[in-house]
Design a protein around this nucleic acid. Structure first.
Lengths: 188, 188
DNA sequence: GCGGTGATGTCAGCTGATGACATCACCGTA
DNA sequence: TACGGTGATGTCATCAGCTGACATCACCGC
């Protein structure tokens, strides 16, 4: 294809995470990332829509996998069980490397713009999953509420998983958050 | 104080909403907003941290009111009842003008950057309320889960309220979403 | 070896955002 | 009344993010 070293996208991703960790997001310029990856700034923007997206473009894959899990759920499953299946697929994808998750999360939490992007990615996934639920015949309002609630459960569980010092499976953390939600909403 | 027309902040807010509605957010330049408000672009940035914030700086007031409602809730209230009280305070503040809410919502939904900002404002409010719950002695995990879930309920209810053609009270919409959440999480 | 294709470089330019400094009405006070 | 302080605003310069237009050049198939 090109006449230069292949894998420019991967090199840019790696360079960006490294520099964001070292100096912080705002202190890192696109030109720095590009230079470290051996390309020009113009090329950076051919791979990533903006300076933030370089940390988030894996979200598309996550979305696909969770949607596939949702669609593979048995017809007898309840709405919340379907959502749980989708979240488990997410956990299976990112749950195997807690150190990487911690690094990425640290970078994101240190900057408001990155937190915004993180939120919209999760919201986007929630909307996609809600669509999937509707295609299974679930009413629109119930679908939206189920996936938004699922996103809330996921956020809390992920934070706990990242903070925890002991051994902990992300899937288990999600299960526990779901259980706590049931306790919260149970009639007194 | 100043030697120019007072109320520059309000004029900028109004000019921005009008122009964002007319031409869209991206097609509106800060200089346009400033000109319409009779100031310079530099002054715009003295009032608002960035081009988006001009639509969102009312959020601080909302946050205060909801936190006050949370703190005023009776000691006997359950966690979810406290969160409901906080959301009702939000509903009381913005629920009286559905047309304004629709306009603002339309502008925000039409642009990804604005949606991001909207999400982080709600997340910020959720975090503030979770802190309030912790100060009332509620465990951190339960507090976070309760307010994140409350935010999910609010989002769904607000969307429904904005979409609805019939007469509808925002408070009622929130109540119904909470009821639906209880139905969702109830054991089969 | 020749032309097409696609990734990259180069360059110019706009817009958002910020720092530094000047300006000038208003206010309290001598 | 004059005078100096204060705070809101203007002016100017500059940078970083981002984009369009066009050139370049290795690779591939013919």
């Amino acid at each position: 294809m090109g006449r230069w070293e292949p894998g420019a996208g991967d090199r840019l991703r790696e360079a960006a995470l490294t520099l964001y960790l070292e100096r912080g997001f705002e202190q890192t310029m696109v030109a720095d990332i590009a230079e470290r990856a051996g390309v020009t700034a113009r090329t950076f923007f051919r791979y990533f829509a903006d300076k933030r997206e370089v940390l988030f473009d894996a979200a598309a894959e996550l979305e696909e996998k969770s949607l596939a899990a949702l669609e593979a759920a048995p017809a007898t499953a309840s709405t919340l069980e379907i959502v749980t299946a989708a979240l488990d697929a997410v956990a299976d994808t990112i749950g195997h490397d807690r150190e990487l998750a911690r690094k990425r999360h640290a970078v994101i939490m240190a900057n408001a713009d990155l937190r915004e992007r993180e939120l919209i990615k999760l919201a986007q996934m929630s909307a996609t999953l809600a669509d999937g639920l509707r295609r299974r015949g679930i009413a629109a309002a119930e679908a939206a509420l189920a996936t938004e609630t699922g996103a809330a459960v996921y956020r809390v569980a992920f934070q706990h998983w990242v903070d925890a010092t002991e051994d902990l499976d992300l899937r288990d953390a999600i299960d526990r958050s779901f259980a706590q939600l049931r306790a919260l909403t149970a009639p007194a």
